[in-house]
Simulated assay, not measured.
Amino acid sequence: MKSKIYLYLFLFVSLICLYLMVSSNNMSKDYAKKSKSSIEKITKLENQVATLKDSVQQSSLKVLDMQYFSLENNDDALAYFEHLDLKDPTTYVTDKLLETNAQKGDNPLVPYEGMQNDFKINKIKVLNHKWILTDFSDGKYWGELLIKYELKDDLGVDFTLVDHLLYTRSN
């Protein structure tokens, strides 16, 4: 009887060991799958981060390139305004130019008559202490102006049209 108990005990322990071995083997395979998929995800994320870094760097270069012709980033042109008590010359000149839109009819700086409505200046880019690039439109037709300006000591601004163009529609 004692030998049968030992035999059954040995068989029971063997079955438990077999179960633990198969179970641990399955767990290690599952862990290997999960770690492989995690590594793939991490690699994919690293590639996306690298792509985003390149994109951010390219965008930064484009912004710097676009700001090259800008009064705010031109120290030599800003030095022209040092004797005046202006915190932001770009905003001041832009506001003075937009005041020309307040007149009834077409803007006096636009050398065309509005076809749909009156031509008014929309967008303004102050290039330096002498030139402004603008966009004008009547709602359907549009064009661009190159304007020379002079900011006087009494803070008056004189605008002179240098060149202009009107885009033609081609249907």
Rank of each mutant, 00 (worst) to 15 (best):
K2R: 10
S3V: 12
L7K: 11
Y8S: 00
L9E: 12
F12P: 05
F12S: 15
V13H: 11
V13W: 14
S14N: 10
L15M: 15
C17W: 01
L18Q: 12
Y19F: 14
L20S: 09
V22W: 04
V22L: 11
S24K: 14
N26S: 09
M27C: 00
S28L: 12
S28W: 01
K29N: 03
K29I: 05
Y31L: 14
K33Q: 08
K34N: 09
K36T: 07
S37A: 08
I39V: 07
E40D: 12
K41A: 11
T43W: 00
T43D: 15
K44N: 12
L45Q: 15
L45A: 13
E46S: 15
E46G: 07
V49H: 11
V49M: 13
A50D: 06
K53H: 06
D54Q: 08
D54F: 04
S55W: 06
S55V: 02
S55A: 09
S55H: 09
S55L: 10
S55E: 14
V56R: 08
Q57V: 03
Q57G: 03
Q58D: 12
S59W: 02
K62P: 06
K62T: 03
K62L: 06
V63Y: 12
L64M: 12
L64Y: 04
D65Q: 09
Q67N: 14
Q67V: 00
S70V: 08
L71A: 02
L71W: 01
E72G: 03
N74C: 01
D75H: 03
D76R: 02
D76Q: 04
A77I: 06
A77S: 15
L78M: 09
L78I: 05
Y80F: 10
F81D: 03
E82C: 00
H83V: 13
D85L: 02
D85W: 02
D85Y: 02
L86T: 05
K87C: 01
P89H: 01
V93N: 00
V93C: 00
D95H: 09
K96E: 08
K96T: 00
T100A: 11
A102D: 10
Q103C: 06
G105Y: 08
N107F: 01
P111S: 07
Y112I: 02
G114M: 13
M115C: 09
N117P: 04
D118L: 07
I121C: 05
K123I: 09
K123F: 13
I124C: 05
V126R: 01
V126H: 07
L127K: 13
L127I: 15
L127N: 05
H129S: 13
H129K: 06
H129C: 07
K130I: 00
W131S: 06
T134D: 00
T134P: 04
F136P: 06
D138H: 08
Y141C: 01
W142H: 15
W142M: 15
G143W: 09
L145D: 14
K148T: 00
Y149T: 11
E150F: 15
L151N: 10
K152P: 06
K152Y: 02
D153A: 15
L155T: 03
G156P: 01
V157T: 05
T160A: 05
L165Y: 00
L166Q: 12
T168Q: 11
R169V: 11
R169I: 14
S170T: 12
S170I: 04
S170L: 10
N171W: 06
